[in-house]
Design a protein around this nucleic acid. Structure first.
Lengths: 210, 210
DNA sequence: TCATCCAGTTAACAACTGTTCTCCGGAATT
DNA sequence: AATTCCGGAGAACAGTTGTTAACTGGATGA
């Protein structure tokens, strides 16, 4: 790629992105199943019918948002798990990375947390399959670690899911801390809690084969 | 209690409960922020305006649903954590208890999982505060265990939150297993996964003070 | 027994929704 | 240069929404 796609397709992708952005903003105070098509087009400043040029329905738009929010996250997850250093250092680094991501893309994080068990089935499935992918990637990274000696595949996948779920919970807590206007000390509280929990999981991992 | 409240208040509570039940049923395929007041009254077979005799809004009804779904759950959680026996036995018993609750009240479980980070703030807060209460109760139960010797309050609360979150995740997985029509072997898969994860957490707990 | 209360009804309101069909004008293709 | 393509606009549709006001009739309490 790429031969500078014509000004026609460029404009199309531009309004498409505008629709996605507007929807994401509107979803800060409601869930996808109550998001109206007209609501979105109104926010962008285009005719309601223009929506159909890009998405079949708001559920369809939701699936696109899942890809936008999680699709580009895989390399980050991989490197997080496989980073070097002492256990506590790795934990601290992982938590800072999560916190940074929440600060950089708060709307994306809220969307995923909200729609993970939201009222729109296709979106739920899209999120679920992405999280399964995450878990599998984490598993292959965990398998490279010398600590994985003697672990069965099932056990590795179990641990991977534990990490992925914990990551999501922590991200969700960071998000709440941001908007609770309780100052940065709340953020520190969340970081400490997450560190303790990851530490306990790591200890359990270390003694798994005893 | 109770002096058999008059047939007037009895009828009122009856329709109120009908509204709650109908709403819970409608919420199986959507989220609270898209639930319409007329939709609920139509399902019950009552005039839309009758809704206002019981709830200020659908958000208000949501808060009432949180109490119904979680309010009566506290004794169960307490006894689950403090049950006797070998570690693996306790884990198996806890998981069976969760699975049984999901089978008995699937709509309640789905509602809580969905609205925990849903689009309606008062409902989110109601759920959050109930879960905090759960965590505190679990903490006081954990404190009674001889294994809690030397644990700080912060560490105990951290572990309690880990258990509560894990409980919710497991319940959510059981719910998915129910409706994925993948047969009872999917349920067994979830039970095994949850058992392994609780086992790892228990091991981490045992070696926490090393 | 009679006056009061109050859960539920009826009617009407302006505003909103998703979806269809027809059209326009500039980009893309030949 | 002539033709096709296509993202977006405009208008109209039947149906829905939350909320108001005034009313009805049976239970309640004096």
């Amino acid at each position: 790629m790429s031969h500078t796609l014509g000004i026609r397709q460029a404009q199309k992708q531009k309004t498409r992105q505008a629709l996605l952005d507007a929807a994401l903003a509107l979803l800060e105070e409601q869930s996808l199943s109550s998001l109206g098509l007209r609501e979105v087009t109104r926010a962008v400043g285009v005719a309601p019918t223009a929506f159909y040029r890009h998405f079949r329905s708001t559920a369809d738009l939701g699936v696109a948002l899942v890809d936008e929010a999680l699709g580009s996250l895989h390399p980050m997850v991989r490197t997080t798990v496989s980073s070097a250093g002492d256990t506590d250092e790795r934990i601290a680094r992982a938590i800072e990375l999560i916190a940074g991501h929440v600060d950089a893309y708060p709307a994306h994080v809220r969307f995923i947390a909200r729609e993970r068990s939201g009222g729109v089935q296709p979106v739920r499935e899209a999120i679920r399959s992405q999280l399964v992918r995450f878990a599998e990637e984490v598993k292959t990274e965990l398998a490279k670690d010398p600590e994985a000696e003697g672990w069965s595949d099932d056990d590795l996948l179990m641990l991977a899911h534990l990490f992925v779920d914990q990551m999501l919970i922590t991200a969700s807590l960071f998000l709440e801390a941001r908007e609770s206007s309780a100052g940065p000390e709340e953020r520190q509280r969340v970081a400490r809690l997450a560190a303790l929990q990851l530490r306990l999981i790591s200890i359990g991992r270390r003694h798994w084969l005893d």
